[in-house]
Design a binder for these strands. Structure first.
Lengths: 239, 239
DNA sequence: ATAAACTCATTTATCATACAAATAAAGATG
DNA sequence: CATCTTTATTTGTATGATAAATGAGTTTAT
């Protein structure tokens, strides 16, 4: 087991969480009993049980007397939990997963842009603008374009001033990372994409929610169309 | 402490979770120490620590030596966790919270309808249709209209065939319950609303994603407009 | 006087052990 | 054959002990 800065319980949580998300333990499978986990990880029952409880709290497993510890149906998994998303990323994301991410991103980001146009404060607008500056700098190699991209999307979510959208920053971050993994280029954001981001910001700043919504929606539908095409090609190859 | 079917740990999790979500413990506050919680609930350290770990896993608290147990910033809360949503509902939902729910529902349900039109299986369509039958029966008092309403929205989410949307059923359920609390009528769904649901189903069945999207979007924007108006009135009264 | 090093008290982290409670499966009973 | 009882397994809970982390206060060196 890799020794990290985390405490014992956290380490076990991550070890088991990763194994569940990458399919080493499948839905319905029984995990080793508490006693077995103790010997496997060479730790006390306290640490083991606390790890089991944390995974239970994240909706991944269920633990009952005599029945043992089992992986529950994936519809119960807290897919928006920051740890679970990390484990998703550590698995082997395929094009289908990328599509799932994009489908939800499309819904979220368009409406977030709409809300930002309605409710963004001056500070919110400044935050979005500075992320655009970073993104422009990135085209000259003065900043990390991927970081700046994440920053932009986060600042729009914040500007929605809706706690639910704000909590979904984790999700967007992971979605962008999965996306980056499938685009075969060094830079995360092209000049055209940068321009699209600028347009959205302008609509938000000018308090034009519908235009912001449409701009975000069109961009995302285009991205999604590319992935759909890739999936079609892949499917025609294998059949 | 109410004695429920749940085990000790779960009971403490719920007691503390409710207190955090209703503001009895505010962000930044220190909860009682492990030792104090043991005496307060009259339970062992084992049960206490496991409860603390579960709340940590849900992103509500942080627990470190010497520092104790503190409520973390709300942006870290797993607002899409089924338990957390339950505690949100048990708090005092106000019009602003209802608006937050509606804003996200709008984004989700429109796109879910779009995806359902693309990817719904025959079984998915049957499920949506049967929920509409229940809803119609409800107008004759033969079924619970609220249950049927939840059923409809769940079946559309399922028909999206996207695990992220499916995981958000909890969220939609809670959103509908909050909504019900603020509409001063016995029945959850009016005849007009029932018709709107039928339209969305027709578009999904006819594989017309854009029409399904627009229909869902228009309905939701109308609902949101009503709430926005109520908030405006409320604000004008208090100032 | 200031900053660095040290001490100390508090709180969580971890371990070990014991017994209780739940429950699935096997066996006994009618 | 069905039902009840027993039994073994696994998690649930309690207790006590020690380790490790850390914030705050104290001392020490410059």
């Amino acid at each position: 087991m890799e020794s990290s800065h985390r405490n014992l319980t956290q380490q076990v949580v991550h070890e088991l969480g990763k194994k569940i998300l990458n399919g080493s333990y499948k839905v319905g499978d029984r995990l080793p009993s508490e006693a077995d986990l103790c010997t496997q990880f060479n730790i006390s029952r306290t640490a083991t049980r606390e790890a089991v409880k944390m995974l239970t709290a994240k909706g991944l497993i269920s633990s009952r007397p005599r029945q043992g510890i089992t992986v529950v149906e994936s519809k119960h998994w807290n897919l928006f939990d920051v740890d679970v998303l990390e484990w998703v990323l550590l698995g082997k994301p395929d094009l289908y997963l990328l599509r799932y991410f994009l489908q939800l991103r499309l819904a979220l980001e368009a409406e977030a842009a709409y809300l930002a146009a309605l409710y963004a404060t001056e500070a919110d607008l400044k935050a979005i603008e500075s992320s655009l500056v970073r993104m422009k700098d990135a085209t000259n190699g003065m900043d990390d374009t991927h970081e700046a991209d994440i920053d932009f999307h986060h600042s729009v979510l914040s500007a929605s001033n809706n706690p639910f959208f704000i909590q979904l920053k984790n999700f967007i971050t992971t979605a962008l990372k999965v996306n980056l993994r499938f685009t075969n280029r060094m830079i995360a954001v092209t000049v055209e994409e940068y321009q699209a981001h600028c347009d959205i910001f302008e609509y938000i700043k000018n308090k034009n929610p519908q235009a912001a919504f449409d701009a975000a929606m069109i961009t995302q539908r285009a991205t999604l169309a590319i992935v759909n095409k890739q999936i079609e090609e892949q499917e025609s190859h294998t059949t």
